[in-house]
């Protein structure tokens, strides 16, 4: 007998769709100057955020965002039953150390830049399964902590390629409850790790686009939905290059009519901000969702959103060993 709430190969639907009752976002100085600067709850004045190191700043960003999301509902940390969060750093230090201070039962998740979708979908399952009633899903990234871990020291003179992306300094957190007012998570699709033998560490978009296309295609076929079902499909952070490839892949996969589609990495910055192909990092999709996108859902501008965060799962070690870049994408359907 097939599982009761599973549809097709990779999709789950919810009997009692969990409600996004509250959310908060925080953005770095550069992101604050971008086109959505007004939509975030908090814009950092500098990258240290009043701390001694960038790592500590990232930890504080996550902490403050979680607190803010809870405070908006007049809750505090003690009211949250479980926190699901992740970031880009080794051993998930930002999330683990933030959880140390928050004192909320905690599950750390690593999905690279797909973490926001991963934490949301696990949170939704826990709420729908009636295990918890107040679940926080969050993700964050910091440009300079990621840069020094994955790429080069920040003061080294490096010429970025046009396909490279700028790791966003941002965080987003969402509070999920079984009842309340707000948009609901109606279905989620859990992605497969897809690797199309891309090796260019300066071009995550090309590595991740096939994973995004695969998850989106599977989501539609699992639920038997027409491709224009959603008002907007937004991928995590494919950037300009990955977004152009994903559009080609939609056509190849026969997604007709063509869905209304955009990408968080492309949305987050203005063209003049010298980010080349666009934004990336867990915080990129997290802050675009918890800032502009959910606001648009409240105002009714968007009623059906498919949020597909994408992640490139490589490490500097595997890159040095000449391994190709595996990628993953999870889809979360959010509807009014």
């Amino acid at each position: 007998m097939p599982a009761k709430k599973k549809r097709g190969a990779q999709t789950l639907v919810f009997d009692k769709p969990p409600v996004l009752t509250s959310w908060a976002s925080i953005a770095g100085p550069k992101e604050g100057q971008g086109p959505w600067g007004q939509e975030f709850d908090w814009i950092m004045e500098d990258y240290l955020f009043g701390e001694e190191s960038w790592e500590k700043a990232e930890n504080k960003m996550l902490r403050e965002t979680v607190k803010k999301a809870l405070n908006k509902r007049n809750f505090d940390e003690a009211d949250a039953e479980i926190l699901m969060a992740g970031d880009l750093l080794n051993q998930l230090v930002s999330s683990n150390y933030a959880a140390r201070q928050l004192g909320i039962p905690f599950l750390g998740l690593y999905g690279a830049c797909s973490t926001m979708a991963e934490s949301l979908l696990v949170a939704a399952i826990l709420v729908d399964g009636e295990y918890f009633e107040r679940v926080v899903a969050a993700a964050c990234s910091h440009h300079y902590t990621a840069e020094r871990q994955f790429r080069f020291p920040t003061e080294q003179g490096i010429q970025k390629t046009l396909s490279s992306q700028w790791t966003a300094t941002a965080a987003g957190a969402v509070l999920l409850e079984p009842v309340g007012t707000g948009p609901r998570i109606t279905a989620v699709s859990i992605g497969k790790v897809i690797d199309m033998d891309q090796k260019d560490a300066n071009d995550m978009g090309s590595a991740m686009a096939p994973a995004a296309a695969h998850t989106i295609k599977t989501h539609f076929s699992d639920l038997n939905r027409p491709s224009d079902y959603y008002d907007l499909i937004v991928t995590g952070d494919l950037g300009k290059v990955g977004m152009a490839i994903a559009q080609q892949l939609f056509i190849r996969d026969g997604l007709q009519p063509e869905p209304n589609y955009s990408d968080c990495g492309v949305l987050l910055y203005d063209a003049i901000q010298e980010v080349n192909a666009g934004g990336s990092g867990c915080g990129c999709s997290a802050c675009v969702l918890c800032g502009p996108l959910l606001k648009k859902m409240i105002s009714g501008e968007i009623n059906k959103l498919l949020f597909v965060a994408t992640g490139a799962l490589m490490s500097p070690v595997t890159s040095f060993q000449g391994e190709s870049i595996p990628a993953i994408a999870h889809a979360v359907a959010i509807e009014n």
Binding site: R148, P153, T154, E155, Q156, G157, Q159, K160
Partner: peptide, 29 residues
């Protein structure tokens, strides 16, 4: 120097100043 390097590429890497840049950037970080 890193601002120069964003534009100049090899022009600021190949000279010995670029060697110094790589040393300082790695150490300072």
């Amino acid at each position: 120097y890193d601002e120069l390097g964003k534009r100049a590429g090899a022009g600021s890497i190949v000279p010995i100043t670029g060697f110094a840049n790589a040393i300082v950037a790695s150490a300072m970080e």
